[in-house]
Amino acid sequence: MFEVTAKTAFLFILPQYNVSVPTADGEMVHYHYGPKDLVTVLFYIFITIILHAVVQEYILDKISKRLHLSKVKHSKFNESGQLVVFHLSSVIWCFYVVVTEGYLTNPRSLWEDYPHVHLPFQVKFFYLCQLAYWLHALPELYFQKVRKEEIPRQLQYICLYLVHIAGAYLLNLSRLGLVLLLLQYSAEFLFHTARLCYFADENNEKLFNAWAAAFGVTRLFILTLAVLAIGFGLARVENQAFDPEKGNFNTLLCRLCMLLLVCAAQAWLMWRFIHSQLRHWREHWSEQSAKRRVPTAPRLAARLIKRESGYHENGVVKAENGTSTRTKKLKSP
Rank of each mutant, 00 (worst) to 15 (best):
T40P: 03
A9V: 13
M1N: 10
L256Y: 06
A301C: 07
C94R: 10
R175L: 00
G177A: 02
I45Q: 01
G247S: 05
R292W: 12
A319R: 12
W271V: 12
L330W: 08
Y133R: 03
T23R: 10
I151P: 00
S70G: 14
I165L: 10
F43E: 10
K148C: 05
S309D: 02
V85W: 09
H164A: 12
K65E: 06
Y185R: 03
V237P: 03
L207W: 13
I158K: 08
G231P: 08
H118S: 04
Q277G: 05
C197W: 12
Y311Q: 02
E245H: 12
L51R: 04
H87L: 05
T224I: 14
A6H: 09
L42P: 04
Y17Q: 00
L83S: 14
P298C: 00
N209E: 13
W134S: 00
H116M: 01
K73V: 01
E202S: 15
L225I: 02
F121K: 04
V123R: 00
L190F: 08
R282M: 13
A301K: 10
S70T: 12
A241T: 15
N78E: 11
Q184I: 04
L67V: 04
H192P: 03
W134L: 01
W93G: 01
H32L: 14
Y169W: 04
L69K: 10
L138H: 01
H280D: 07
I13V: 15
H312A: 13
L330I: 14
M258F: 11
P107V: 00
Y58A: 13
Q184A: 14
F208C: 11
F95N: 00
L228C: 08
A212E: 08
R108I: 01
I13R: 07
R66Q: 12
S20E: 15
Y33D: 14
N250E: 02
A264V: 06
F95D: 01
L60A: 01
N321A: 02
L14S: 05
L181R: 05
A319H: 04
R147G: 11
H275W: 13
H280A: 15
A229R: 05
W268K: 06
K318E: 02
K145R: 06
K328E: 08
E3D: 10
K76G: 11
A235G: 07
H275N: 11
G322V: 02
L278H: 14
F242W: 14
F189T: 14
Y198G: 05
Y44Q: 08
T193H: 11
C94D: 13
Y142M: 12
V316N: 04
A297K: 09
V163W: 13
A187G: 09
Q184C: 06
E101H: 02
Q16K: 07
T218D: 11
L228G: 08
I49S: 10
R219I: 15
T327L: 06
L171E: 02
P107G: 03
F242E: 01
I50F: 12
C94E: 06
H68C: 10
R195H: 07
L138Q: 00
Y17I: 02
A53L: 08
S276M: 15
E3K: 13
T5E: 06
Q288K: 15
L119D: 03
E287A: 13
F46A: 08
E27H: 02
H74M: 05
L259Q: 09
Y185K: 09
N203R: 15
A212F: 05
H30I: 07
V98A: 00
Y44T: 07
N18A: 13
K329R: 14
K331A: 01
F2Y: 08
N239V: 11
R195T: 13
R326Q: 10
R293N: 14
I59W: 07
